[in-house]
């Protein structure tokens, strides 16, 4: 008995060298096949690098917020790559520093939505029945409100600052995440290994965290990338209407808003922040779509 088992194992080892490809590697390979997704990944990585290295690229105090009336509204030139705005501030420096706010607020808002919404969704999906009904109907109420409107209400009620805006956007995305996590949990909870985990005495908490959520990670990652894009857009929208980041702090949305008056003669003023938003959202959407295709074997050709 012992002997046959040993032999069997070595034979298995022998075949293993031909298919030594982990699941992650496989996902990575099919992700690389999607050229658009790779473009998205590279663009988003660049944006992150720019945001992290912002102080090295442009001086915040001297270029991004210092008013310089003599040099106002100059078109893009050698000194000012994207030109200067109505107060003579370098638009390039403002875009670079604006990326920090967009990314920090966008990512932390989605993190809030993921943890709050994910927890509710996981509980609803796992226990089902009455618990599910109560949680999801509450979520449905919030889902009825458009997210900008909900965020707007929260910001208007608690005052406009970066923290409030993050919380507002996070809470307005919460119901969406709870729905995604709930449906992912519901598909996994019926699989036999969940029952097997229960049969060895795992508690509900252990089953949810160790066995269920880890197997739902694919759809969750995809949602996260797509909603970070959506959050960044919401920040800009809120700032544009004056309820988000306040001047003079550079933020793409409020740059658009303040540049609006000069748009007719100095189009570059709104073009730069507009393009920044566009590229960021595009890169995240391409990345999210690519990840979804790579993680979902059914969509493979």
């Amino acid at each position: 008995m012992e002997n046959t088992a040993k032999k069997f194992t070595t034979k298995k080892e022998f075949f293993k060298q031909y298919k030594k490809k982990s699941r992650l590697q496989e996902i990575w390979r099919s992700f690389l096949k999607n050229k658009l997704a790779v473009v998205g990944l590279v663009l988003f990585a660049l944006i992150i690098i720019v945001a992290i290295a912002a102080p090295l690229i442009a001086n915040y105090n001297n270029a991004a917020i210092k008013v310089n009336v003599q040099g106002r509204l100059s078109a893009p030139n050698a000194e000012h790559m994207f030109g200067t705005d109505e107060m003579g501030r370098d638009i390039f420096a403002r875009i670079v520093h604006g990326a920090r706010i967009s990314l920090v607020v966008g990512l932390s808002a989605v993190a809030i939505a993921l943890f709050v919404g994910g927890a509710f969704g996981a509980i609803a999906g796992f226990f089902g029945g009455m618990v599910d009904n109560v949680i999801m109907r509450c979520m449905d109420v919030f889902l009825c409100l458009p997210d900008v409107l909900l965020a707007l209400a929260i910001v208007a009620a608690f005052g406009t600052n970066q923290l409030n805006m993050t919380i507002a956007i996070g809470l307005s995305f919460t119901p969406k995440f709870s729905r995604v996590v709930r449906s992912a949990v519901m598909t996994v909870r019926g699989i036999e290994y969940v029952e097997a985990a229960r049969a060895i005495g795992a508690t509900n908490t252990q089953i949810i965290t160790k066995h269920i959520l880890i197997n739902c990670i694919g759809p969750i990652i995809v949602q996260v990338t797509l909603y970070v894009a959506s959050a960044i857009l919401t920040i800009s929208a809120l700032s544009f209407i004056g309820l988000g980041i306040q001047a003079p702090i550079p933020e793409w949305g409020n740059m658009l808003a303040s540049g609006r008056a000069y748009m007719r003669d100095h189009a570059y003023i709104v073009m730069a922040p507009g393009l920044a938003i566009f590229v960021t959202i595009l890169s995240l959407n391409l990345l999210g779509d690519g990840l979804r295709d790579a993680l979902d074997p059914r969509l493979k050709q």
Partner: peptide, 30 residues
């Protein structure tokens, strides 16, 4: 009681193992 006094071997080994945990972890869990 589950796993300690009574343990169960399930019908289909393909679905009764968690695909994202190592087998060592899964044996150690109990």
């Amino acid at each position: 009681l589950r796993g300690d006094k009574v343990a169960m071997i399930f019908q289909d080994p393909m679905t009764s193992l968690n695909p994202v945990l190592t087998v060592g972890d899964q044996i150690a869990e109990g």
